[in-house]
Design a binder for these strands. Structure first.
Length: 419
RNA sequence: GCGGCCGUAGCUUAAUGGCAAAGCACUCGGUUGUGGUCCGAGAUCAUGCGGGUUCGAGUCCCGUCGGUCGCCCCA
């Protein structure tokens, strides 16, 4: 038995200041997402492994190397979810959500798991907040998701967000492009890195993402030139909507997302202030996914952002999260006073006036100290004498002035003072 | 999965291979019932864990766990 347990590698406890950031991000995200008509969803942290091997893609790194998977006692092959979209797609199919008015719009804020070497901004259990719009095909829905995320970051104080955007085409124009790309890379084979030589066969698009093969990339054909009329028009519309909404974007013809299910519009978000190219999140259209998982051909689009990375970015931008604490504090002394203050606390709660207390603290000095640290404006003090006479003292912490009132007037008095 | 650096109290940091220290925070007291400032005292099984070298290891070596940076990949 070890003397000291540590949390598992790449997993961490969230409390204190860190929790305040989490809470803030969750609140802002939920609020904004609801305004745009999204509703909440929670899916299980694990799924049948096939949901991910089929959905995310058998040959993606996420599935091949990074998934926590195991066999249950009953013999089912399951995996901890490495991302959110596949599980939600499974849920959409399972509950026949196509029978509702389309599209279905979901938001989530949840933990995900990937077995990777941990680093700053990269954990084995990490949190994402995301959106999915399933069941309607329209570029305005892609733009809307980008807009929600953009506005969440605006509200959090990260103003200099940049959206990098590209289109991967649908399955037919992508196939066409991949052929051209393969031909190009084969010609340049000698100058490709070892990894990319392998990539040409399995997934030539990923070469565009390589940081080593920059020269070969630059001379490569661009996908936008190979999009069919439909896809090009679709992509153009997304960009037009973004312009309409004043959301800044950069076209990035090298942007290729690592998950197999993406089609057409794809994008990643970066805080332009930070020097590292750590993406805050990304998303795109995934019209093939529902079908891959056994449902009908269903258009869909979504995005997900990393919570821990958002916090890193907030801290880089020196954005502090102010915790709201009650402006009133109840202090008590003696057993009788404690009992009466417990009751008084309930009255404040019923009247929807937040107050704080430190009933566990013995000395009045400690309680005053705590009230001060919480920046209380008023402290209600009840000692033995006041308890017996059904009085309570109101102390104005700024001026130090105190007055006596009847205990039953306390809620009313405080309400008056707080205005 | 591969390579570099790091790990001393709740936090931030000291300690030529030679008694493990300080500040902040915490608790108590100065004020038998009043915060911020001040003064005094106290407390924490502190060298991540396990081996080795040595008369002696926080310090050197090996392993391991954790963190961090780069590669890979991604949120």
């Amino acid at each position: 038995m070890p003397k000291n347990f540590q949390s598992p590698s790449g997993m961490h406890d969230i409390f204190g200041e860190q929790y305040d950031y989490f809470e803030r991000i969750r609140e802002v995200f939920f609020k904004v997402a609801k305004i745009y008509g999204f509703e909440g969803i929670e899916t299980p942290v694990m799924e049948n492994i096939k949901v991910f091997t089929r959905g995310v893609g058998e040959h993606t790194d996420i599935v091949e190397k990074e998934m926590y998977s195991f066999k249950t006692k009953g013999g089912d092959q399951v995996a901890l979810r490495p991302e959110g979209t596949a599980g939600i797609a499974r849920s959409y199919i399972e509950h026949n959500l196509y029978t509702r008015t389309q599209p279905i719009k979901f938001f989530y804020f949840a933990p995900f798991f990937r077995y990777e070497r941990p680093q700053a901004g990269r954990y084995r259990q990490f949190w994402q907040f995301g959106l999915e719009t399933i069941g309607k095909e329209s570029p305005v829905l892609d733009a809307q998701i980008i807009a929600v995320m953009y506005n969440v970051f605006q509200e959090l104080g990260i103003k200099d967000l940049v959206v990098e955007i590209n289109s991967m085409g649908d399955s037919s124009c992508r196939e066409e492009f991949e052929k051209v790309l393969k031909k190009h890379f084969k010609k340049e084979n000698s100058s490709l890195c070892a990894d990319c030589k392998k990539r040409i066969k399995k997934n030539p698009l990923r070469v565009l993402d390589c940081k080593k093969c920059i020269k070969v990339k630059e001379s490569a054909p661009q996908i936008v030139d190979y999009l069919c009329i439909q896809c090009r028009d679709d992509f153009k519309k997304v960009l037009e909507y973004l312009e309409e909404l004043n959301i800044p974007y950069d076209l990035n013809s090298f942007l290729v997302r690592g998950l197999d299910y993406y089609t057409n519009t794809v994008y990643e978000f970066f805080a332009s202030g930070s020097e590292e190219r750590l993406a805050l999140g990304g998303g795109g259209r995934y019209d093939g996914l529902i079908n891959l998982l056994g449902g009908e051909e269903t258009p869909a689009t979504g995005a997900a952002m990393g919570v821990e990375r958002t916090i890193l970015s907030m801290k880089e931008n020196e954005i502090k999260v102010e915790k709201e604490t009650p402006r009133v504090f109840i202090a008590q002394l003696s057993d009788l006073a404690k009992r009466k203050c417990l009751k008084l606390f309930e009255e404040f709660r019923k009247a929807n006036v937040p107050v704080s207390e430190s009933f566990g603290q013995g000395s009045l000095k400690r309680q005053m100290n705590k009230a001060n640290k919480m920046n209380a404006e008023y402290v209600l003090i009840m000692g033995e004498e006041e308890a017996v006479e059904d009085r309570i003292i109101i102390r104005d912490m700024q001026s130090g002035q105190q007055e006596n009132i009847k205990t039953k007037e306390a809620v009313k008095e405080i309400k008056k003072k707080l205005k």
